Amino acid sequence: MQRRDILLGIGIAISGCLGTSENNKYEPDLDPFDGYPPLPTQIPPQQIFDPTTFDVAKVNSQTIPLAPLKTVYNWHQRGEARFVDSRSQTQYERSHILGSILSPAPSGIGSSDPTSDWPKNDRIVTYCGCPLHLSTLRAASLLNSGFTNVYVLQDGFWEWHDRRYPLAGNDLNLAPKIWIIHGKTDPSFSGKTVWIRELQSGQVEATMIQTNGEFKSDIRFSNISLTTPISIEAPHRTIVSPLSSLIDTTIEI
Results as ranks from 00 to 15, higher is better:
1 M>C: 11
3 R>S: 13
4 R>N: 13
6 I>D: 03
7 L>V: 07
7 L>N: 09
9 G>L: 00
11 G>S: 12
14 I>E: 14
17 C>M: 13
21 S>Q: 04
21 S>D: 13
23 N>W: 12
24 N>E: 15
24 N>S: 05
28 P>E: 11
28 P>C: 00
29 D>K: 01
31 D>V: 10
32 P>K: 02
34 D>G: 08
36 Y>P: 04
36 Y>L: 13
39 L>E: 04
40 P>Y: 01
40 P>D: 13
42 Q>S: 14
43 I>D: 05
44 P>L: 11
45 P>T: 04
46 Q>V: 03
48 I>H: 11
49 F>L: 11
49 F>M: 05
58 K>T: 14
62 Q>L: 06
65 P>A: 12
67 A>F: 01
68 P>G: 02
69 L>Q: 12
70 K>G: 07
72 V>L: 14
81 A>L: 12
83 F>C: 11
84 V>E: 09
85 D>C: 10
87 R>Q: 15
87 R>K: 10
87 R>H: 06
88 S>M: 14
88 S>C: 14
88 S>D: 07
92 Y>R: 07
93 E>N: 15
94 R>P: 00
96 H>S: 09
105 A>R: 04
107 S>C: 10
108 G>W: 03
113 D>T: 15
116 S>Q: 13
123 R>H: 08
125 V>F: 04
129 G>F: 15
132 L>A: 07
134 L>W: 00
134 L>T: 07
137 L>G: 07
138 R>T: 09
140 A>C: 13
140 A>T: 13
141 S>V: 02
146 G>E: 09
147 F>L: 08
147 F>S: 02
148 T>H: 06
157 F>K: 00
163 R>M: 13
164 R>L: 14
166 P>R: 01
168 A>Q: 15
169 G>P: 14
170 N>E: 15
170 N>F: 05
172 L>P: 07
175 A>T: 13
176 P>A: 03
176 P>V: 12
176 P>E: 03
177 K>N: 10
182 H>L: 10
188 S>P: 00
196 I>W: 02
199 L>F: 05
200 Q>G: 08
200 Q>H: 14
201 S>P: 04
201 S>Q: 11
201 S>D: 06
202 G>K: 03
203 Q>K: 01
204 V>I: 12
206 A>Q: 06
209 I>V: 06
209 I>F: 05
210 Q>K: 12
213 G>L: 03
220 R>E: 14
222 S>Y: 04
223 N>A: 10
228 T>I: 06
228 T>Q: 05
229 P>I: 00
232 I>Y: 02
232 I>W: 08
236 H>I: 09
238 T>Q: 10
240 V>A: 04
241 S>F: 07
246 L>S: 02
246 L>M: 08
246 L>R: 00
246 L>D: 11
247 I>S: 02
247 I>G: 15
249 T>V: 09
250 T>N: 07
250 T>P: 02
250 T>L: 03
251 I>L: 03
252 E>G: 01
